[in-house]
Design a protein around this nucleic acid. Structure first.
Length: 497
RNA sequence: UCCCCGAUAGCUCAAUGGUAGAGCGGCCGGCUGUUAACCGGCAGGUUCUAGGUUCGAGUCCUAGUCGGGGAGCCA
């Protein structure tokens, strides 16, 4: 008897002998025909369950089948039959219980709607719900689609490091990576005892001349694992640029870390980021790549996960499918920052009020971005050419700007409902200009020695962007909280599981 | 980090400062090719923690912990 996954069994020909294996979602009983039970079985292979019909003549019917509860693991042999109301079901010839649910009254996943807040507290079991199963399949589908997109276009997947000793990425607070702390007294609950212990520890350390002084002043990292300060990466961009300057088209797709104490439905301390980098390319090519990638992802998920997307549209976000279809069908708008400001100022003249002021030179607030993409243009917009004062040092200065309106070749892709989903730029490939920017921003040139080398040895115009993977999963599924689109969310004060 | 809101049965929520309840889930029974099934019964509680006010606190006050929404930062 062939073991089929549920998705295969649902499409198997009537009359086929099959075995399915999975977990019970619900069981309903009937007294007809001397007793029978309907078991909805899921195995993660698709959104739908398959109904297994187990009759009272099974040897273990009263003893086991009739006692199955939500979450039990079973193997069922049987024949594919047509359900009176349409679709395949399985007429069971055997139901083997592989794993019982201990104490069903307290099994955390009940056959009823649960709040997402609650399910976060049982993250080890939440994949068994239809929502989290659907999110997991969509997430996988998107990850595969990202690799396929780049592979088909001649990009190489570059593994950039997770641990970095270059403190120069400048994208927010970083997590320290160190083996030093275990050499220092750890904080104790009993502060008196700790002080006493610390004193002793100082004496011990002083006795050992080769130990780093740590009690006062700056920590000496020469004795640390890497011989200098190290952190978890906040971006693979600077590293991936080095490979771009040899392999022309590259991308990195991996975890990134931000130690910022930001507590929102759109931020994680650990998230996955996709960062392509293209050589011999300008901002326009970069924007086109971003648009092509997003559309490819939307098309793929609509095609390959139609079952899950139907669920998201029915239960999570009504427009989930419809808005992806719309976006796929028309070109993204390109609007300069300066024109965007003009649109906002015009809206204010017409009576629109914003909490924050609109002024050329300041960064757009989320309310401004939301107005542009949701109310004014009502579609994805690529905003380009931002003032240099609000952007990173590595972004290329635009040529021919007025002195007090200097912009850089940066872009943000704004999507209705989620805001900024992609941030990118053409990179500054001219060493003199890059050095001037480093100086302007009080950054130490020596810290960027290898990054500057790229501008000394065969520099070319190049560009790239960063796409937050969870943000795109959020946008596609309509899930409100980013903690529900990653299996094990990491956020301030949250590292359970 | 800032502002606002919340925490009561396994889950979702009620309860004027005066006996702690319902729906769902679980268990038992009835009915039924059922499918968010339906009907009846039973079990299930240190009302987040620590203090305080009061004759009396789930309810009021203080502090803390955790969670949610919004903002900032950003992806």
């Amino acid at each position: 008897m062939a073991w089929l996954r549920v998705t295969e069994a649902l499409r198997a020909p009537v009359g086929a002998d099959v075995t399915v294996k999975g977990w019970v979602r619900t069981r309903r009983d009937s007294k007809a025909d001397g007793g029978l039970s309907f078991i909805a079985l899921h195995d993660g292979s698709c959104f739908d369950t398959i109904q297994v019909v187990a009759k009272g003549d099974l040897s273990n019917y009263a003893g086991e089948v009739a006692k199955l509860t939500t979450g039990c693991a079973v193997e069922c042999d049987g024949v594919i039959v047509q359900n009176p109301k349409g679709g395949n079901e399985i007429g069971a010839s055997a139901v083997r219980v592989v794993g019982w649910v201990d104490d069903p009254d307290h099994y955390p996943i009940q056959p009823k709607p649960h709040s997402f807040e609650y399910l976060r507290e049982v993250a080890h079991l939440r994949a068994r719900t239809n929502t989290f199963g659907a999110v997991a399949r969509v997430r996988h589908c998107l990850a595969m689609a990202v690799h396929r997109f780049f592979h088909e276009r001649g990009f190489y997947y570059v593994h950039t490091p997770i641990i970095t000793a270059s403190d120069c990425e400048g994208a927010g607070q970083m997590f320290r990576v160190s083996t030093l702390d275990t050499m220092r007294p750890l904080p104790r609950v009993d502060k008196e005892a700790q002080r006493a212990e610390a004193k002793e520890h100082c004496k011990d350390l002083a006795a050992k001349a080769n130990m780093p002084p740590w009690t006062y002043g700056q920590v000496d990292h020469s004795g640390d694992f890497f011989g200098k300060e190290a952190h978890l990466t906040v971006s693979g961009q600077l590293n991936v640029e080095t490979y771009c300057m040899a392999l022309s088209r590259v991308y990195t797709f991996g975890p990134t870390f931000r130690a910022e104490n930001s507590n929102t439905a759109r931020h994680l301390a650990e998230f996955w980021m996709i960062e392509p980098e293209i050589a011999f390319a300008d901002l326009a090519a970069d924007a086109q790549l971003a648009e092509d990638l997003l559309k490819h992802l939307f098309r793929t998920v609509l095609e390959e996960r139609a079952d899950d997307m139907k669920f998201f549209a029915e239960r999570i976000e009504k427009t989930a499918v419809e808005r992806l279809r719309m976006i796929v069908d028309k070109p993204f708008l390109r609007v300069t920052y300066t024109d965007g400001i003009a649109v906002l100022e015009d809206a204010i003249r017409k009576g629109k009020t914003f909490e924050f002021p609109v002024r050329w030179g300041s960064d757009l607030q989320s309310e401004h971005e939301r107005f542009l993409t949701e109310e004014h243009f009502k579609q994805p917009v690529i905003l380009t050419n931002y003032p240099k004062g609000i952007k990173a040092f590595y972004m290329r200065l635009d040529d021919g700007c007025e002195p007090d309106r200097q912009t850089v070749s940066a872009m943000d892709v704004l999507c209705p409902g989620i805001g900024e989903i992609i941030g990118g730029s053409q990179r500054e490939e001219r060493l003199d200009k890059l050095d001037a920017r480093l100086e302007e921003m009080n950054l130490n040139k020596d810290d960027y020695w290898w990054y500057r080398d790229l501008r000394r040895y065969g520099t070319v115009p190049h560009a790239g962007f960063g796409l937050g993977f969870e943000r795109i999963v959020q946008f596609i599924t309509g899930m409100q909280n980013i903690r529900d689109v990653i299996p094990f969310p990491r956020a301030p004060g949250q590292a359970e599981f």
